[in-house]
Design a protein around this nucleic acid. Structure first.
Lengths: 200, 200
DNA sequence: TCGACCTCTGGATCGTTGATCCAGTCTCTG
DNA sequence: CAGAGACTGGATCAACGATCCAGAGGTCGA
């Protein structure tokens, strides 16, 4: 993970990783069977940095928001995860967080199909958001956004709204994410029929 | 794209692509400067399959839902896009759809910061959802889900809620996506102050 | 004490890949 | 018809993921 944090996923090779660990590259293949295994392990390792709120810790909405915000923070702390998110996440750390999310929603009184749909929406929202933002954070974020902004302004005839508002002109990622999460939680909360709130 | 649809992104090499086109691999480098350019072009090419609703076509909510559903359908029609989504999307086809999304929300009466946040949330939700689902669709979906489901049931002591409900046990992706989109649109609609609806 | 056995290591090597060099071909224009 | 620019591709390079295979280190029972 130190190697990934420093140089990104593109520059991670089995040889360089072995050199970093002070061994030969062949040795790594005794512990993992393929390079994808290394990437899967690294991706799951990110999630130990996602704090899991204590059970029965107040309102379900706060607990879910805490989990999702931590989820996003961990992914953004390691931007190389953006490229890796398009692979099955079945590691124990991911599953633990996902289990907590489902359990919290279940205890809050959500029933199918809303239970699965709510967890589905929250997970995919945070994954998509972190990936989008991490994409623009690789390398020099300021330079990338400036180039993209100039490109949009140069073609402002084709993309007028995008050049005026738009995610690349003075967008505060944190504010947008928080608002988007509120939209989603509002909608989820509204899907629960009255009288279904065990501990609202 | 035919090569990608048939064999996936892992088996796309410049040599095989050149052979498919009936030329040498060197020739490709006259038209593109790197392999990443090919992938960027292929990813943007997907979006021509996303129908853009006509302007002034009824309620903004229906227009947005149509765009987002088409967006998801195009990504799912080419599951190899899941691995590629973690890269900057600045192609003309993507920008056209993004421009339409922002313009529609602007015309519907949304103002900052809700305008940017709504577009941000919708884009990231559909990207995350399509990526998650495409991840499980590569190869034999039935087999992958069965293996994952058995794994969860085997560790049902650690993941009880996930083994009972959970995205891998009888989850209808289409239903969950539609419900999640409704949650998001409900929340977005609620963020607009009364009296701001030019054409509600 | 010894030797069989399992865990673990790594130099050498294979096939493949992305990318480049450079000589050559094609086509269009004046 | 000559020259310039657009385009092609065989040969080649460094780097990569992965494997082969010989061997080191430790453990345990006879």
């Amino acid at each position: 993970m130190a190697l990934l944090d420093e140089e990104g996923v593109g520059r991670l090779t089995m040889r360089r990783l072995a050199e970093r660990l002070g061994t030969g590259s062949t040795t790594l293949y005794w512990h993992v069977s393929t390079k994808d295994d290394v990437l899967d392990l690294a991706l799951d390792r990110i999630f130990v940095e996602v704090p899991v709120p204590e059970a029965d810790a107040g309102h379900w909405r706060e607990a879910v928001a805490t989990l999702i915000n931590g989820w996003r923070g961990a992914l953004l702390a390691h931007p190389w995860s953006a490229t890796l998110l398009g692979r099955p996440m079945l590691g124990p750390n991911v599953l633990t967080r996902s289990e907590y999310l489902h359990a919290t929603l279940l205890a809050a009184g959500f029933a199918e199909p809303h239970l699965t749909a709510a967890a589905y929406a929250l997970s995919n929202y945070v994954i998509g958001s972190a990936m989008m933002q991490a994409t623009w954070r690789t390398g020099d974020e300021q330079a990338a956004r400036r180039v993209a902004g100039e490109y949009l302004r140069a073609h402002s005839d084709r993309y007028p709204t995008l050049a005026a508002h738009g995610p690349l002109v003075g967008n505060d990622w944190d504010v947008s994410f928080r608002l988007g999460l509120d939209y989603l939680l509002d909608g989820i909360q509204g899907s629960r029929a009255p009288g279904q709130q065990p501990r609202s």
